[in-house]
Amino acid sequence: MTTSNADVTKELFVPADLNDSVSEQISGESVSAWRDAIRRFVTNKGAMASMIIIFLIVVFAIIGPHFFGYGVDDQDVSRANLPPKIGALSWIPAFSGHEGGVDVYKEKKITKNYWFGTDQLGRDLWTRTWMGTQISLIIALIATLADVCIGVVYGGVSGYFGGMVDNVLQRILEIIAGIPSLVWIILLILILQPGLVTITIAILATSWLSMARIVRGEMLKLKNQEFVLASRTLGANDGRIIFKHLIPNSIGMIIINTMFSVPSAIFFEAFLSFIGLGIRSPQSSLGSLINDGYQMLQIHPYQTLYPGIIISLLLICFNIMGDGLRDAFDPKLRR
């Protein structure tokens, strides 16, 4: 504030240009909400890196099990507990095939390389790890579907119709949410046999709750806005308003929430398999592999290491990507 009032003279003021055609002109290129979000997402280095890592994991989960032609359950005790060995990378201690200073491959006269080693039944861990990753990814897909198909519809109906419908649906939801999901899942597993189907049902039953709440909140916020009224005036029915106007407007929130329910579903499957209530042998899942390896942790730590790294990477990347999407779709939340 160095200039005093006396320095401001009348000559400094110039009338603004009031010409409509000039002031109304859009100088920048118009950007849709989607492109704006994508642009913000792409500049987020962490989120992009996570996306690439997830993509790589997906690719390996698909092609990985076919690398060496072993089945998930091809047992051969003569090659049991081999440490990882990759011919081209054998200068790295972790991939040299040595364990406790001994070249186990030479000792057992095995010429083939097992990239992630073998377990105590001689099953190839590379194949089993990627098969397990497939399970995790299937679970991720199921959680997404549950969120979108059940959560969005439930929350949408509840929020849009309001009144009695809302009241009843919310009370039901409150009761379902009042039961810890662990209890739900364990009850289901007790009745059905442990396995992929049971886990699927359990995730379908529990993972959509938070989505339903969020979509309901969005509906309550949006349904009284002018564009909905305009649409109704033009004769749109409820279904059209919900699916053409309200849900597309809350798509950002829906995507963000889906991204966060995916890692928790993946974690839950691994958790259940780890305590022996999920996927069971001979099928493999990352959780059950970690559990198997855990029994041998003191002698053969590599059996836990690789499934552990992959599930951790998956979860970290999904979480970072979720953060990135949240920042991209809702810059207000960016902090």
Binding site: P263, F271, I290, T304, G308, I311, S312
Partner: peptide, 9 residues
Amino acid sequence: SIPSFIFAA
């Protein structure tokens, strides 16, 4: 992100 049981191991 890292599951508690992996951390424990």
